[in-house]
Amino acid sequence: MLTHELKASYAFVERNFNLSRRYWGWELAFLVYSAAGALSISFIGVQLGDARLLLTLMVGAIFWNYLSVVFSWIAETISVERWEGTLEYTMMAPVHRSTHLLGSVAYAMVFGLVHTTAILLAMIVFFPDLALTSANPLTVVSFFILGSFSFVGIAMLAAILPLLYVERGAQMTFVLQSVLLLVSGVYYPIEVLPGWMQVLSHLSPATYAIDGVRRGLIDGVPVTELTGDIWPLLVMGVVLIPFGLWAFGRAERYAKQTGKLKRVG
């Protein structure tokens, strides 16, 4: 039973891989776009001659890139199929929605890692003499993992939007992503934001994940000293993933009641 589900979720991994392969031109363009974005932000640090700021911006750019790639692959689970016209066929198949989403998540993470590694390499080429001697790799890896899982739930919730709003759903996902970027302290400390925005900052998992990665990479803080960043991420992962699945099920049912999966044909 479990292996059957795992195999079925691999179907989505393989299919998404095939899609990336066939749309390789787009993927390459997107990679260049992301790398250029990350570099241009980092050059702000160079301009100000502040090595710490440079590092802070770089870490923000790279890690945000990772999170947003993971986010979009999961959030677009539905919209991609709606666009291709295959949504009804996938929904008819004998797989649980959790299996479906698991496949999407797995591919999103692998793709995100590959993508981000490429950008990291570009950074190293441009800034070869960055000193990361005091970095604590365990902290960095821990926050990569924690950050990924805490983001999955939010991405699932975003994936629901195209189910509920046939035309606007994909655009709303986009808005959500940009708000997360704004409030999560990716390039600046959240303290510079207006008070009401800082409330949102505390609700975004990215705030804690990026803070954790930064402290581990720049200051070499051991993971054990970062419990203040760890527990919100754990709670968000544990709460949001099941909630996302549940909400997805509800949204699917609503779509089937109101005929929003597809209407023509």
Binding site: Y10, A11, N18, L19, R22
Partner: peptide
């Protein structure tokens, strides 16, 4: 005929096959 249009018939069919176990 609803397919992933950039994928080949075989890729589309094998995707379906995997979904059906």
């Amino acid at each position: 005929a609803a397919f992933f249009k950039k994928l080949s018939p075989m890729e589309n069919l094998l995707f379906a096959a995997r979904l059906y176990g």
